[in-house]
Simulated assay, not measured.
Amino acid sequence: MKRYIPNQHGAWAMLILPFLFGVAASGGHYLHIPLFVCWLLIYLFSFPLLQWVKTRRSDRYGKPVLIYGALLVPFILYMIISVPNLFWFALPLIPLFAVNVYFAKTKNERALLNDISAILAFCLMVYPVFYVGEGESWEMATSLFVLSVLYFIGTALYVKTIIRERKNPYYYYASVIYHIIMVVLGLLFWPAVAAAPLVVLLLRAIILPKTGVTAKQTGISEIGFSAMLYLVVIFCM
């Protein structure tokens, strides 16, 4: 199943949170259901595809690519027929995915630039979800997009202090300083209650890397932190 199901627990938060932000900014619509299935299949399709690019093992990853691709096509066609303008929202994803392909090919997926490219692709999902839901405030959608990007970039830095760069003090300091800046920005531009989870994330960045928390525990906990952020956003809207 490792060929079919991504083993990065934190990535599921990136898949779901921006989508939920888009729904929150616009209101529910029945087309959000097939749109989410489409988005999920795109993620599941891209995982073995990037592994194929990285390892060049079509024998291992060719079948998952074909299966997910076959499942994905009818959903893409349905969404494009139902909402033709969705095509334009997909265009920014192409260069971002090209960056991911490059880093997979060079076997350097853990590069921060690769993480940021993936984060932008995930977070851009706020906009098509908002559009499908016939939302009215693009300013709100953009605010939630920015919040998503800031949160997940901070998470990428924090996760590196736990796994790849756990012995690198510069990454730890960069992560803590980044989260301090996030708190300051939150206090300046959002209600105080909305900045509260940013303080929690700052404490996470300061304390957890020193506790010996594992990569799996970190990934699972990020789902909880994402839920916290979502609930606070819903409360403030």
Rank of each mutant, 00 (worst) to 15 (best):
R57V: 02
P128T: 11
V199A: 05
P169A: 03
I33Q: 06
S117Q: 09
F103D: 03
C123N: 02
C123M: 01
F21Q: 02
A13D: 09
V53Y: 03
A196M: 12
N85R: 11
N7V: 01
V176N: 07
F19R: 00
R166F: 07
P197L: 11
H179V: 01
I76T: 10
V159A: 13
L187W: 05
W190R: 09
A196S: 10
E165D: 13
G27K: 03
P209S: 10
P34F: 05
M237D: 04
A121S: 02
Y172D: 09
T211Y: 06
W190Q: 14
S175W: 11
Y172N: 07
P197K: 10
L157R: 02
I16V: 15
I116V: 15
V232N: 00
V232D: 00
T214L: 08
I163L: 14
V146K: 04
G224K: 13
A121M: 03
I116E: 00
I220M: 11
F47V: 12
P197N: 10
L44R: 02
W138H: 07
G224R: 15
F89N: 01
A141W: 08
L49E: 01
Y170S: 09
M140T: 12
T211M: 09
P95R: 00
Y127N: 05
R204F: 12
A215W: 14
G219N: 13
L96D: 07
S221Q: 15
S143K: 09
A215L: 13
A24I: 05
I223H: 09
L157K: 04
F152N: 10
L86N: 04
R57T: 07
G133F: 07
T155A: 05
F89R: 04
V83T: 06
G224A: 11
A90Y: 13
L201G: 01
H32L: 08
Q8V: 06
P48E: 02
K160L: 12
Y61S: 14
I180F: 14
L91D: 02
Y172I: 08
D115R: 12
A227P: 15
M14F: 03
T55N: 13
P64L: 00
L229C: 14
I42V: 06
V183Y: 15
M228E: 08
V65G: 07
M14N: 05
L187A: 06
G28F: 04
V23Y: 01
M79F: 01
V193W: 02
V101P: 01
I67N: 15
N7L: 03
L72R: 04
I42P: 03
P169S: 03
N7D: 06
L113C: 05
V37Q: 06
I80F: 05
V37M: 13
T55A: 05
V129Q: 11
Y127D: 04
I162L: 14
F87P: 04
T155W: 03
V73K: 04
I33E: 02
L201C: 04
F47A: 13
Y61W: 12
V101L: 14
V73Q: 08
L113N: 00
C236N: 11
L185E: 02
P191I: 02
S143I: 10
Y78M: 14
Q51R: 14
Y158R: 12
I153D: 04
M1C: 12
F36L: 08
C38R: 05
C236V: 03
E165C: 08
G186T: 10
S226I: 09
V232W: 09
L44C: 02
I177E: 04
